[in-house]
Amino acid sequence: MSALLTVQDLTIRFGGVTALQQVDFTVQAGSITALIGPNGAGKTTVFNCVTGFYRANTGSIHLHGGANGGSNLMALLGESLQWSDLWQPKRLGSRLYHKMFGGPHRVNQVGVARTFQNIRLFNALTVMENLLVAQHNQVDSGLLSGLIQSRRFRAQEQAALQRASAWLRFFDLLPEANRLAGELPYGHQRRLEMARALCTQPRLLCLDEPAAGLNPNETKALGRLILTLRDRFDMTILLIEHDMGMVMEISDHLVVLDHGEVIARGTPEEIQRDDRVLAAYLGSEPA
């Protein structure tokens, strides 16, 4: 196995609060890695950094492999200009470019997709449209070709429709394809959001509490779906989850955060025996 994502020395401060302090971890390609920790430990902050919604103060996030042989996710967000750039026109150009066109969307384009803790669907659009929006960068989005309905445009729209149908079938949502996303039951909305993230054809799928609000049966089914994603589709998955039963069952690797710091890493068995983790969750007796 090789690493797909390397996070090094990630530190982020909001005003005087240090939300993350030198967070280090790697995600192996084709694995399920879970980020766990008590409330307020900084799990979602890590997620927002990895998916490009927050910019860390220091540290680096690298996504390996892919078409261009790896990308520095932080650089995609745009870095602030520095005086020394004046002597290095190439770096200045690259920084200006990323400043103008950088942002979370670029992170998605290199292969990181995510879902949200509080579901963010396009409620007034149908289920199918939600999935078509996700394929914006894979279809011919030119103005002219769409207006004249060129052959290429129609072929790509059909391909997008097929891909969307396939994912809908996988998540057992095909009968709902023409319903509005906002009127689906909660559990279906969670699955739809995952389907939508997968439609962007990511290499790393980040799931933010996918089992939140699901009943035990649904949680079990979701765990199986996530395992299938790894085994059948070679998807690499990074997830945040509070449901320890599910986390211990499906994860290959765990990273435990507390107060913005990594306190333990390892397989589920190792983590379950780790004293610091137990202390973080249950509190420790005063020495």
Binding site: R120, L121, F122, N123, L125, H136, N137
Partner: peptide
């Protein structure tokens, strides 16, 4: 579709590479 998606949820749009 992207216009309508943007109207519905801008953050989700960005997370989808738009």
């Amino acid at each position: 579709r992207a216009w309508e998606a943007l109207r519905e949820n801008e953050v989700a749009c960005r997370s989808l590479g738009i």
